[in-house]
Amino acid sequence: MIEFVFQNPILSALLALGGLSAAFGAVLGFAAVKFKVEGDPIVDQIDALLPQTQCGQCGHPGCRPYAQAIAGGEDINKCPPGGQATINALADLLDVEAPSLDAEHGEHLDVKRVAFIREDECIGCTKCIQACPMDAILGAAKQMHTVIADECTGCDLCVEPCPVDCIDMIPVETDLKTWKWDLPATNQNPVFHVVANEVNLIASDLGRGHAFGDQHDGNKAA
């Protein structure tokens, strides 16, 4: 039998290849079971990246539904509160090109905002309470309402239903606790050096931009 195999090179080749594939298959199968990665389902991962404002600007009733929609193939550029940062993170996660924000769904505001009820004017209609996806408005019928600022995501959804227009979106101001140093001055963001020449910079020149304040050797942007 063995001799027969040896005498038939094609047969022996087939056997060898078959054996090899069986062996490797077994190894791979074993590895797949043994080293199985218990990753989060993709929806959870997407949901974790979304800003959780639950504002519905993407057209879905909340962030999780949008996460599900993204997992189902929807565009990732429909989240104005998250802005480009969220889009980039999503693109990174899903390994796709990062598109820019779809203006159709609104604009990204750099300043975070929270709702504020002018309490003298509130009539206690509870309409904003019903609209708030966060349960961040406190109050009862015919009682003055107030926003729990710490829980408010600035989604805007309570402004429209208010019959007396007593809800304002006020920007969150930096205080001593949230203050932080800025990155050092660059040409895009000169902090303490005046930029004399307007120069087109590329990313690699960040941090060197303020050099141009004392450069007058005629390097106007080409």
């Binding site: 519905g56 600007q57 009733p61 159709e104 309409k127 805007d156 429209e160």
Partner: peptide
């Protein structure tokens, strides 16, 4: 009632955003 109110608001916001964009 709550949900419908919220949905109505969402719808409105959506419509508004869409309209604004154009």
């Amino acid at each position: 009632a709550e949900q419908s109110a919220a949905q109505a608001a969402i719808e409105k916001a959506k419509a508004k955003a869409a309209a604004l964009a154009n």
